[in-house]
């Protein structure tokens, strides 16, 4: 019985709170402010930091591999030895059917194939920091290439 006595005052208070929230608070927006130059610079810095890490990984830097706990090669070779300037990596053509893998592949699939086959290294987490950095560097270096997915 005591609970029933309390019910109506509680409901009344709850409705009051909801009314207050509906009337007196700002609605939530995903992008409520215009971007400032500082923000854009910060975004760029975040991206370029990943590009630089990817560049170091791509060129076989042992310290960066150790820090990210990856082993991209067991033969002394590095990605850049076959792909100077990331040439012939063709990120703009993925996803596509990749002959060597005999499957429809993404750039990340191809990166791991290269690590495992020619480099005889150890496959990396496809969503991990090393993969993201490699992807950032390869895309950055090819940023002026023509997007052409599926092209061989």
């Amino acid at each position: 019985m005591a609970n029933e006595k309390l019910r109506y005052p509680l409901i009344t208070a709850g409705v009051g709170v909801l009314f207050f929230l509906a009337v007196d608070t700002e609605p939530a927006f995903a992008h409520k402010d215009k971007h400032t130059a500082e923000q854009l610079q910060a975004f760029e810095e975040v991206f370029m930091e990943q590009v630089k890490i990817g560049d170091l990984l791509f060129h076989g830097d042992p310290e960066t591999q150790k820090r990210l706990n990856v082993n991209l090669s067991n033969t002394g070779t590095a990605c850049a030895m076959c792909h100077p300037y990331t040439s012939d990596t063709h990120p703009h053509q993925f996803p596509k059917f990749q002959e060597q893998m005999n499957e429809f592949a993404t750039l990340r699939n191809m990166i791991n194939w290269c690590i495992e086959k020619p480099n005889e290294g150890e496959k990396i987490d496809p969503d991990g920091p090393a993969m993201k950095a490699l992807e950032a560097y390869i895309y950055w270096s090819n940023r002026n290439s023509k997007l052409d997915p599926g092209r061989h």
Partner: peptide, 19 residues
């Protein structure tokens, strides 16, 4: 052209940055 990597007009590359 499809069997060669020479003269691929779709590929535009940039020099490396980290060094």
């Amino acid at each position: 052209g499809v069997d060669s990597n020479a003269q691929d007009s779709h590929e535009v590359l940039s020099p490396r940055v980290a060094d």
